[in-house]
Nucleic acid binder design. Structure first.
Length: 157
DNA sequence: GCCAACGTTGGC
DNA sequence: GCCAACGTTGGC
């Protein structure tokens, strides 16, 4: 089983939106980056767990955990001219963009902020992709050790 | 294949 | 809202 981190801007879709969604499940649409697409299409598997990360907001950080309940399938929002993520170059016969479905496992009792994560960049979280300079990937792998550590500090404080 | 222009991401 | 870092596009 692999671990991931997936970013969302809480103004468009937050962990609380997910908590209120039917069956606490949603499709993770709108990824329009090839590296992230490749992971959603080829590597993210059913049963994998992912950190839900709030980006571009007042307190960026990890806010909870989701489980992958459906593996990569075509992102239909790319076919909809009305959709913000419409991509005329994505052909339904040969889809360019993919998504997965995620289900809420739990919301952390507190936000494990980016600021806090950075404190461990030199030791416990060294090599964590999220902390790499200029990192903009919206889907990224998380090592088992990093996964465990972030979980452990989510309980504390 | 190079690279300038442009668009996006995302922390601050 | 600013802007650095990055990705994509398109002319050549």
């Amino acid at each position: 089983m692999n671990h991931w981190l997936m970013k969302s801007e809480p103004e468009s879709f937050s962990i609380d939106h997910l908590a209120r969604a039917p069956r606490k499940t949603t499709c993770w649409d709108g990824v329009r980056n090839y590296q992230a697409r490749n992971m959603l299409r080829d590597e993210v598997k059913r049963g994998d767990l992912a950190f839900f990360y709030h980006s571009n907001c007042e307190l960026p950080g990890v806010v909870g955990i989701v489980e992958i309940v459906r593996e990569g399938y075509p992102d239909h929002t790319a076919f909809d001219p009305e959709d913000h993520h419409f991509d005329p170059q994505s052909d339904p016969q040969n889809p360019r963009w993919f998504m997965v479905d995620v289900k809420l496992v739990r919301k952390f009792p507190r936000v494990v902020s980016l600021r806090e994560l950075k404190e461990y960049a030199g030791n416990k979280l060294s090599g964590f992709r999220l902390l790499a300079k200029g990192n903009r990937l919206s889907v990224m792998p998380v090592s088992a050790a990093h996964w465990k550590f972030v979980n452990s500090i989510s309980e504390a404080k």
